[in-house]
Design a protein around this nucleic acid. Structure first.
Lengths: 141, 141
DNA sequence: TTAAGTGCAAATCGTTTGCAGTTCG
DNA sequence: CGAACTGCAAACGATTTGCACTTAA
């Protein structure tokens, strides 16, 4: 993998990457490639889905974005918050997300990792469910 | 479309389901649908991949198998472990992953979600870091 | 200039579904 | 018999790749 602090010699500053990076920056929480595609479009930029995927892959490799996979097998990306650890409570229905924190989890994560001999720990916790509004008896999915 | 995962009318005992269940039983850890397909074949049974998927879906719904999704978006299944939930400790360098569990996190997740009025909770915990081997001074990759 | 970057369309690949033929009960 | 169940092939949807064209440096 790339060494930290050493910029990639083959990295060009393109309009597309800037747009993607910006969308990633503006996004609060995880986004699928498609969502990012839409975000970029809404921002008035035109970037191909392919480029979204390739750039995301590139950023992930550089460790600038975290990648998770949902139960549906979809990849979701988030700007990697170096050192910062905040989690989200995401509504499956409306997408509303609440930021949550809990020192215990942080503690548990680093502790567990250490027990397994892991270092340079970073963790991600995402809780999916239906928010109060969406789980009302007369709401649908 | 009548998948064996519908309501619970009449779960029929078929040769295929027996074979799948047996393969699942013999499997040591997680298996992909394909692997299970092969396992069943090696056991001398002939079951379609479709049936593997449908039965797995059915078993998952009944809570008899756990389903996880790998980074590649592949679903992996494992028999039983009702209520047990695994998380992963993933090495950023070699990709080696260790399964971890901790009831406290489960508790925390559902508790926190409930406090925010969320229901039908599902959570994902991923801990990234460098495993012992990869953090050794002379390791590469 | 020229190789990295981009985008469209086609290709992948795991998983799902349409449908007609089987089989359990 | 009739509803479940099965399996093949086609459909699917997210992601990747082939290839000709742009563009940053």
């Amino acid at each position: 993998m790339d060494e930290p602090g050493r910029s990639n010699p083959t990295a060009r500053a393109t309009r597309q990457r800037a747009a993607i990076s910006q969308a990633l920056n503006a996004a609060d929480g995880f986004r699928t490639a498609q969502e990012l595609f839409d975000d970029v479009r809404n921002a008035g930029e035109r970037v191909g889905l392919t480029t979204i995927y390739r750039t995301l892959q590139w950023l992930a490799q550089k460790g600038e974005v975290d990648v998770l996979v949902t139960k549906d097998g979809e990849a979701i990306y988030r700007r990697c918050s170096t050192g910062e650890h905040h989690h989200h409570l995401v509504c499956r229905s409306c997408g509303h997300s609440v930021e949550i924190t809990n020192a215990d989890v942080e503690e548990w994560a680093s502790q567990t990792a250490a027990n397994h001999g892991f270092s340079a720990i970073t963790h991600t916790v995402e809780v999916f469910g239906f928010c109060r509004a969406c789980s009302s008896p007369d709401s649908d999915e």
